[in-house]
Design a protein around this nucleic acid. Structure first.
Length: 434
DNA sequence: CAGCAGGGGGCGG
DNA sequence: CGCCCCCTGCTGC
């Protein structure tokens, strides 16, 4: 510091940094991990996640894959979005009524500043240090602010650093749309669920490396605001990885291109699935995929199928211990005795799937109580709910691709008997015309 | 027009 | 409650 040394400081460093981060996320630039939650896929950055959560950090440590997919069960999608917002921008607005649920989710994921005491950056953790070395200029901790932020939701507006940073304002997640169970949006939503992509795993790389040692550290050791009833939660976290056999080169491309499944980017498809965008040469028995989709579907399909098939499930979870996190699913498939889905399968390729079943976050699914006090069935794969179980079983077929009603006259198959019936009438009509 | 998917009503165990 | 049937709305060709 002696002679001639100048201290150059970047005034708006923090604000700019945050802004750029948020922008990168928005553009899905450099994203290297995908978090799946309630059917949505969120391309995000390992760096950010691991900075904000040791839980994620551990996951990444244990998953050497370049672009893992982390499937979060029983974390509310909205909460997750809020948490992402929080992680990327250091603040998020949340309705007071949702606060508890959000905190719970944060605890499950061990988000610093919300669930885990925001350790001082001085610590030697590399994640922390990576940030804190530039913390000289911003007087505030590089870490997310402490939780109370939420209460006065708007406080982040004027968060230090002059620049109001309009673009970085918590973007209201393209998929918020409060009511998830709206039938209106169903047709929309199911498209992103991969209605016909087919593809999926099974033979592919099912030999996952399966290390579930993530659970241990995460077992509710949170010292933060202890939740009323945190169920067994994360100790049942399991992580299953799907090692993809294919070179990791195409991986990135495919990821980038196929990553929005209608979730975040929704339309910003630029490079059309370069690289081996997931060989999804699904050869379905009946080849009933009139509108086969390109690689886009690959991942969600994989995820869904992985979660869906009872058999797939077994394989996935290492044949066994079904965590409570999957209970919902179990309920359906289980009750669904005859539902022997023999999913069309192929390896989704290119991705490492990390299924992380975290314990139920108290309120469970948001839409639930609202719809029907009595019995509401929740789709384990999407926000769809219905009161009639039979409707649910039929709905689940859109995820599992089971089509139990084959046309006797052609290779087509249908998920609903009625649809088959109407289809058969077309055959009759044709034969009459001819 | 055909296919898909969700919802509701009726009926029987 | 579960099954069956039918209707309806939406979407893509």
């Amino acid at each position: 510091m002696a002679d001639g040394m100048l201290s150059l400081s970047w005034n708006n460093h923090r604000a700019t940094f945050c802004h750029i981060l948020a922008t990168l996320r928005e553009k899905e630039r450099y994203t290297d991990v995908t978090v799946a939650c309630e059917g949505k896929f969120y391309p995000v950055h390992k760096l950010v996640l691991s900075t904000c959560s040791e839980y994620f950090e551990k996951i990444f440590e244990n998953t050497p894959c370049k672009h893992p997919v982390i499937v979060l069960k029983d974390v509310n999608r909205c909460d997750l979005e809020a948490l992402f917002c929080y992680m990327y921008e250091g603040a998020v607005s949340v309705a007071q009524s949702n606060l508890g649920r959000l905190i719970k989710a944060a605890e499950v994921l061990r988000i610093k500043g919300l669930a885990v005491p925001d350790e001082p950056p001085i610590s030697d953790r590399r994640t922390a240090s990576s940030h804190h070395h530039h913390s000289s200029d911003d007087r505030s901790s590089p870490h997310p602010k402490r939780r109370r932020r939420e209460e006065n939701s708007h406080s982040h507006q004027g968060r230090s650093q002059s620049s109001p940073s309009p673009p970085s304002s918590p973007r209201p997640s393209p998929l918020h749309d409060g009511g998830d169970s709206h039938p209106a949006q169903r047709s929309r939503s199911d498209s992103q669920w991969g209605d016909h992509g087919a593809t999926d795993r099974e033979d592919g790389g099912m030999d996952g490396v399966a290390d579930d040692r993530l659970g241990d550290h995460s077992t509710t050791s949170h010292s933060a605001p202890t939740p009323p009833q945190v169920e067994v939660m994360v100790d049942e976290t399991l992580v299953k990885e799907e090692m993809i056999d294919q070179g990791d080169t195409g991986q990135e491309d495919m990821m980038d291109s196929g990553m929005d499944y209608g979730s975040v980017g929704s339309d910003s498809r630029l490079e059309g699935s370069a690289g081996g965008g997931g060989e999804e040469d699904h050869m379905l028995p009946g080849k009933y995929e009139p509108k086969a989709n390109p690689s886009q579907q690959a991942i969600p399909e994989a995820v869904v199928e992985a979660l869906a098939g009872p058999s797939g499930m077994q394989t996935w979870l290492g044949g066994g211990e079904m965590p409570s996190g999957f209970s919902g699913l179990e309920g359906y498939t289980g009750s669904e005795g005859g539902q022997d889905l023999h999913p069309p399968s192929q390896a989704p390729a290119a991705h490492q799937l990390v299924v992380s079943g975290v314990g139920r976050v108290a309120g469970a699914r948001e839409g639930a109580p609202a719809t029907t006090p009595g019995k509401t069935h929740h789709c384990p794969f999407c926000p769809y709910t219905t009161r009639k179980k039979t409707h649910m079983t039929s709905h689940i077929r859109v995820h599992t691709k089971e089509k139990p009603f084959p046309c006797p006259h052609c290779p087509l198959r249908f998920t609903q008997k009625g649809n088959l019936r109407t289809h058969i009438t077309t055959h009759l009509r044709k034969s009459l015309l001819l």
